[in-house]
Design a binder for these strands. Structure first.
Lengths: 167, 167
DNA sequence: GTTGTTGCAAATTTTTTGCACCCAC
DNA sequence: GTGGGTGCAAAAAATTTGCAACAAC
């Protein structure tokens, strides 16, 4: 199970850091400062982001917390594998959001301002299973994106938000 | 070959060619041989494809029906704008399918063989409207992809189909 | 004859990889 | 100490764009 601390208490992995550490160890991978920095940054705020935003964000931090572009990409993939992040593709580029300790949900995507609005639907899960059953399919997940125009953009039809103006 | 797609008993009014011509004219664009060639190719068979497949496919045709790579990309975008094709993103690359004269549907995506299985669900439309209403959102469309492993791949766990082995 | 279109090559954008050095274990 | 990790530069993959020749209207 979880590794005990010196007091002998059994810890359940609760923070993203712990959870990621567990994943890495299970894969024989190492816990490096870069990986810690990235997990910190990614889970400090709950919003949608892409690799470029994360890199830019890190560039504005003290030199100590800089991580190279390839490592950012490598680590994002690991975080997806670990089940901590979920990846979706918006306009060709990958967009990430928290997947761990965050309820299952889907998205409304405004094509004017690129904003993502989250919503939950219990019916969808039933639908998913029903369809899978009919098609002899073993489900591991799903992605539903409803596209359209959000209320804000509907009113001020002329003005547009900047791309990737996220939730 | 088939000029319209038959929806049960009702045939749609115009062919993709006609429909595209209409779109082009409404935009002040021109009907060129390349565009005709592409529409022909794309609507000759009903399956999922990506830009590279289409280009390869064309390369094996008589010289007369060759179209350059940029033009293929440009025209695919126009066909999406015209509502003739639907675009979705599979593993970073764009995948297209017919959208005109073809019933609304969604997909099961097998992550082992990359096959896309189509299905229809009427409940989804209700769900879509309900969610949109709640969020003050004007819906133009949606995309649902249920990921998992298809029956074929579940049985022969070891063997894998080649990527983009399509429906 | 105008104005949009094509093809070519090259640029852009996003993401991945090879490799020498480095560090967590 | 050793094997995995990092950063750098460079490659790769997918798509877009500038521009001169060209064709549709």
């Amino acid at each position: 199970m979880a590794k005990g601390f010196s007091l002998g208490t059994v810890e359940v992995a609760s923070s993203p850091q712990e959870r990621f550490a567990e994943f890495l160890q299970s894969k024989g991978k190492r816990i490096t400062s870069q990986r810690r920095i990235l997990v910190d940054h990614v889970f400090q705020r709950h919003d949608h982001f892409d690799a470029e935003e994360l890199i830019l964000n890190l560039a504005q931090q003290p030199a100590a917390s800089k991580v190279s572009r390839p490592t950012v990409y490598r680590t994002l993939n690991e975080l997806v594998d670990a089940g901590l992040l979920r990846r979706m593709t918006l306009n060709g580029r990958a967009v990430y959001e928290h997947d761990y300790g965050y309820p299952q949900h889907d998205h409304l995507h405004c094509t004017m301002c690129d904003r993502l609005i989250e919503f939950q639907s219990s019916e969808l899960k039933n639908l998913r299973e029903a369809v899978a059953m009919e098609n002899d399919f073993r489900v591991t997940g799903h992605r539903l994106i409803i596209t359209g125009v959000c209320g804000d953009c509907s009113s001020k039809q002329h003005r547009q938000h900047s791309p990737l103006d996220l939730v």
